[in-house]
Write a protein that binds this DNA or RNA. Structure first.
Lengths: 209, 209, 209, 209
DNA sequence: GGGTAATCGAGACGGTACGTCCCGTCTTTTG
DNA sequence: CAAAAGACGGGACGTACCGTCTCGATTACCC
């Protein structure tokens, strides 16, 4: 959202929307090719066929630019209905891993997260743009499972309930990210199945206690 | 450990081990103070009271330097015997989270991991320096639990066994890292307990099936 | 399309002519103060109140910079009309010697010439920037002397003529440079007179033969 | 003359004379190959198959080393008796030019002279090692010419006489050096003849006035 | 349809850090 | 003890980007 306020209609020549798109594309491509740390504003501008000035008129620095380019990558995460809780979880695990394993995404994500450790504003950005988007999938999956009777209804205490959702989210997302980026091992259906079994049994056992 | 082999005794003046230590210390301090991206080789050298060349004689660039410094942070991770499997896991989760929450560590770790997504050599470095070190803790904890009778002996198939260990490792490390760095929520004893319960129940249920 | 453009006027911000001048001045001053070998690009930039990059945008290295600075020193060499050929030659000899005896100039000139023995490009530079500039003085003096009737008109064969001019030039410039820099003896009016007499008599005698 | 006092016979291992020679050779070769400014002590030592320490034990710095290597080049200048004053002068002009045109010599000479403009000690060195050596050739030529009756006997005033010798020396050496190194034109027999004629006629005309 | 005002490209600018190279000194082990 | 090997503090080099700043040349809108 480089030009968030389309309405005020300031005088003078309006900004080129083609440039907007070309810059975003070039940024994503560059991110895939060379990664965050070796990505330079000059190269992005050149690849987009745009002057550096044009780029800086839209984003105040390299960080802003990359964050905007990355956040949009997570738009495509969906939770198809796979018939059972186990299948649903395996589906989302595999979809998420697939996203992470695509050449540019992993690097971009890590880069942005790494940068965020120093920048509270950026961190908040990430929370809103990425974390919340993913957490919705967990909620959605639970609702379906509850409808199927595979999971009990929400806990009485809403805080307690939120804590459980957060836990599940961190376990699922964390395990997939860690296996992919740190252990650098593939997340294949077998691993997904094994992992899902572990989590759901844990959940069931903990609940039935 | 840039000079691991003390024996061959090459000709010429030997490298100063004091410099080794001073550089590592200075790097870690600088990492905490200013973070990866603002860390300067020149500053590190100055802080260590060492010439820049001395530093470059040991590590070929800023990346190498920081990776070694970060890896050494994980040296302190130990698995104290807390009396039970549940307590052991909670202990290591809290110790790991504490490490990640220290100001410089999180940024450093993420930066190094991010960098590794483009550099296979660096990725291998990380595997050896960090991943293997942590995986040892998992193995050690399992041995203790087996001695206590809390866990069954190793699986018959060693490959199957390795897969299980890897899974547990990714789940534990991943969840802690994710909650700390992505969700940006604190890992406190309550979360550790809740998480540990989930995992151990899942493990037990899956095994007893 | 009359295309009246007197200057190509490339796109983009034009180079600062103030910077040009400041750098040249600073280089000459530094050359006088510390000499070629101790002259630092960084110091020159600082003294000129200019970034090092601005300097490197104009000259590709320290050598280029100094050559241009040295060559410009020769701009001031003029041939005032002193009334007679003998007086004209003595004038230019003394002016040239004065230039060479100024603290920084001798070192600079020698350094540049020394450097040129290995670098054909630099050698060509010197030819264009220094040699041709001085040779013009010889031609100018001859024209005046011819107008006064002190010298015969140009030889019929232009090649032969050029050879004579080259000879005179090497003798005059060579003798002054050698006495100043190698013999390290002063070029005073007495020496200039003695030298001029020798050359002009030789010229007259050789011509009248 | 790196080790000027061979006699005292200090205790311990004596310095290797092979090293002396190897270093001098390597220095001269390096001077030819890369010139003064790009010659490094490290490379010379390597080429000589000697440690840098060994080199520094004999010469205190790069300058000393090169001056010693260069001075010896001028030992070979001689004045053969060519039968007449004109022939003698042409001979020495050609011999000197030949020396200067040899690949390494010109660079070395200029480099040393250039360096000498900053270093009075070095300048004195050059006077003794090079200038005086050449000036003797002028004196020797005059004596022969006087014996042949081609030149009048020494002037009555010895100072006046010395001034004349100095003048001739600067003119001859200067013109040859300038043509070779600055004008970068060849000194061939034709030029030598033309030049010699000019000088001798000038000398004769000036004397007979 | 002519002004006007913000855009665009190009590229120079002051900076900062990089990683390399060489200097001349120093500390070792080996002969 | 000298020699070979090579690490050390220091300092300049030339390069690469950063984010800012002119420039002249284009547009779109608004009068």
């Amino acid at each position: 959202m480089p030009s968030p306020a389309p309405s005020p209609r300031r005088a003078g020549r309006p900004r080129s929307t083609e440039a907007d798109a070309a810059i975003m594309d070039a940024t994503r491509e560059a991110l895939v090719d060379v990664g965050w740390s070796k990505l330079t504003v000059g190269h992005v501008a050149a690849r987009a066929g745009v002057a550096k000035t044009t780029l800086y008129r839209r984003w105040s620095n390299k960080g802003e630019l990359v964050v905007h380019a990355v956040a949009s990558l997570f738009d495509e995460l969906e939770l198809p209905d796979c018939g059972s809780l186990q299948a649903d979880v395996e589906c989302v695990v595999l979809a998420f891993a697939d996203l992470l394993q695509r050449p540019g995404t992993n690097a971009s994500l890590m880069a942005v997260v790494a940068e965020s450790t120093h920048d509270p504003v950026l961190r908040e950005h990430i929370r809103n743009a990425i974390v919340e988007r993913q957490k919705r999938l967990v909620l959605q999956g639970r609702e379906r499972a509850q409808a199927r009777g595979e999971l009990p209804p929400d806990a009485a205490d809403p805080e307690e309930d939120a804590r459980l959702v957060d836990l599940i989210f961190d376990v699922i997302a964390g395990a997939v990210v860690h296996r992919t980026l740190v252990s650098a091992e593939p997340v294949d259906p077998e691993w997904a199945s094994r992992f899902t079994t572990l989590i759901l049994h844990g959940l069931a056992a903990a609940a039935s206690r």
